[in-house]
Design a protein around this nucleic acid. Structure first.
Lengths: 195, 195
DNA sequence: AACTAATCTTGATCTACATCAAGTTCTTTC
DNA sequence: GAAAGAACTTGATGTAGATCAAGATTAGTT
């Protein structure tokens, strides 16, 4: 149940088997079925989730009732509404399971205790966040500078896996284009490949 | 010379005056004049910069030679090309001073030593990055969901200071619109106010 | 102070993508 | 396994904002 988590931690910091054993116990396993919501915008979440298995998405809904996918979280990724989790604010994002998923949940309190007992984990989370920032900055530039087709092609090589697993409407939303445009772009790209 | 830095650290973690004194010495003060580049895309940077005074911007240049402002950094903010700083990759962003500025530079090595000697700073940087992530996610959603006018108004209340200090072409680029559109939006908004 | 160059404004035109609409295919579910 | 409902495709039309172009301000330099 904790394989992905352990691999995820080991990738960034060196921890002894004993430490890992202790760290594991701060997490609460939870299964969530496809289409179930892990978080509804407006609620306050006490948890941050590590995805052991499955796929989730976080998204906001704007005034025109359009959805905007903020993040996809497949195995090995973390997902929450950070503002709500850290500050107890009302969440602005919804989080939905796109597949039957297995999560490892961390409450704010458990996280603080864990960081207290295992200072190495401060470093772990810092490194994790550094990578997020790099990816988010790139996404902003991509959103501002690429055409619909370029955005799609970029996703093809950055996240080929998610492209296979997530419904196209959500991929379109993640890329900042409509499902119709994505459909046309896909046709275009597939013709370009064979022709 | 370190007032902003000290305030910035104190805001997030509690540190003794002695610790602060030690921490200060990991930073190298540097002045940079308006229009000077702190970093050129393609170079590798050894430094991350804390802005004591002044204003900088980081930006990328796309294939059509358009600039895209990734970040503005006024007093109290940090700026670098993270990927280059952390991994020694070639920088993808340029960093330019928009005003005569005073920076406090941290090399990767100094940062690692500082984190070693002052584990509290791990926490400090983690908290700093959490805030960045929250802001970046919001910016992505804003970029995808708001009209040009809404983007401008949002900036008016999120960063009124930068709106005053940075040239409009760079603000337009930050918002993902052209300078012409920004000019029209500003006219529109100012008419709306009085009329 | 006058010259130069950058920045900002305004108008006319163009275009990538959104929107609307109607059909098709794939998924649930009972 | 048939019916209902999502999700995807395709075409026709609309539009926000880009691009192009030319003038008006503003700022920097000698």
């Amino acid at each position: 149940m904790h394989e992905q988590l352990i691999a995820n931690i080991r990738k960034r910091v060196s921890v002894s088997p004993e430490e890992l054993e202790s760290i594991k116990h701060f997490f609460i396993p939870k299964k969530i079925r496809k289409r179930q919501y892990f978080l509804n915008a407006g609620d306050v979440t006490r948890h941050t989730a590590f995805v052991e298995k499955g796929l989730l998405r976080s998204f906001s809904i704007d005034d025109s009732a359009h959805e905007h996918v903020v993040q996809f979280a497949p195995e090995g990724w973390w997902i929450t509404d950070m503002c709500s989790f850290l500050s107890g604010d009302e969440a602005v994002y919804n989080i939905e399971a796109l597949e039957d998923s297995e999560l490892l949940l961390l409450t704010k309190q458990a996280m603080d205790e864990m960081l207290e007992q295992h200072p190495k984990m401060e470093r772990f989370f810092r490194l994790l966040m550094q990578n997020s920032i790099i990816a988010l900055q790139r996404r902003i530039v991509g959103t501002l500078s690429l055409s619909a087709e370029e955005k799609y092609k970029r996703m093809m090589h950055l996240y080929p896996d998610i492209l296979q697993r997530a419904p196209q409407q959500h991929i379109a939303s993640f890329l900042g284009i409509t499902p119709e445009t994505l459909s046309r772009v896909r046709k275009q790209v597939s013709i370009g490949k064979q022709g």
